[in-house]
């Protein structure tokens, strides 16, 4: 990010975003106090928060929106925060990484920063739900029904983007679905993976959410079993960007079970 003109500072004393299955499912004041805790860390330093994980992003955005909607909530939360010597005003904004890359850095600067490209490769996209809906709270696309940002960013790396029928569906990996209904959730994900395999010649899937990444990756291991489906490696956008910017495949941390060698070997060679 510094090479792209974005300075990063670590926030000290961060806690879980909170994930929707935690405090937001237990108590509203606890939910908002934890959101405000994290947001106040950015506020104190005068910075916005950069987030990659879809649900962290959505949770922080919803917390901020709920606090903005109602003064009573803000007051209650500030009484709670005062116990820890903190205060919340709502100045720091959570921003998703692809929003920042597209709207702050811009595709031109990204193109200029590349040492190699993905020219000649084909990508299928997984748009993280949490960056699209509800657009009023989390949105940064002109049209949430036809998101463009991730595709434009992938094209900036030289890849061709392949569309498919279930592109706008959820990956199926978030929340309780996968836990309450394991078989049904994987069947749901399978429909997406099958659509990518049958309708496109994608070499890899690009996501921008850690849950999408881990779920689409692990689901392939779980689902392929013995039926020889074509495996499709899954990358976070920032991993592909880093590879094209010249970082070595080893540095771009390997959180995956599906082998990515077919895609990364082109970078090892340069």
């Amino acid at each position: 990010m510094p090479r792209l003109g974005i300075d990063l500072v670590d926030l000290e004393g961060y806690v879980c975003c909170p994930a929707f299955g935690t405090f937001p499912s237990l108590d509203e004041d606890a939910h908002l106090a934890v959101s405000a805790w994290n947001l106040s860390l950015g506020e104190d330093k005068g910075v916005d928060l950069l987030v990659e994980c879809g649900s962290c992003y959505s949770s922080l955005r919803l917390g901020r929106a709920l606090l903005a909607r109602d003064e009573g909530r803000r007051e209650r939360v500030n009484v709670l925060l005062a116990k820890a010597g903190k205060h919340y005003e709502g100045k720091a904004k959570p921003r998703h990484i692809i929003d920042v890359l597209y709207h702050e850095v811009g595709v031109d600067r990204i193109r200029e920063s590349l040492e190699s490209t993905l020219a000649g490769t084909h990508a299928a996209l997984q748009h993280p739900c949490h960056t699209l809906y509800p657009s009023e709270v989390v949105g940064f696309e002109e049209s949430p029904a036809a998101p463009r940002v991730l595709g434009e960013l992938v094209r900036a790396l030289g890849a061709d983007v392949r569309e498919y029928s279930r592109e706008h569906h959820c990956c199926g990996g978030a929340g309780g679905f996968r836990h309450s209904s394991h078989a049904e959730a994987y069947r749901y994900t399978r429909k997406k993976l099958d659509a990518i395999r049958n309708e496109t010649d994608a070499d890899y899937i690009v996501v921008s959410c850690i849950t999408c990444l881990m779920h689409l990756d692990e689901a392939q291991k779980e689902l392929s079993g013995n039926n020889g489906d074509r495996p499709i490696p899954v990358f976070d956008y920032s991993q592909l960007l880093a590879l094209c910017m010249g970082f070595s495949p080893g540095e771009v941390a390997a959180i995956s079970t599906v082998s990515r060698d077919r895609v990364t070997e082109r970078f090892a060679a340069v």
Binding site: H130, P134, G176, F177, S181
Partner: peptide, 25 residues
């Protein structure tokens, strides 16, 4: 508790009922 927290329901609701927020409530 099976909700994936995607908020599609909020996006499409014509009446702004915010079903996902009510699911959490």
């Amino acid at each position: 508790w099976s909700c994936v927290t995607c908020s599609r329901c909020e996006e499409v609701c014509p009446m702004d009922v915010r079903p996902f927020e009510i699911c959490l409530a």
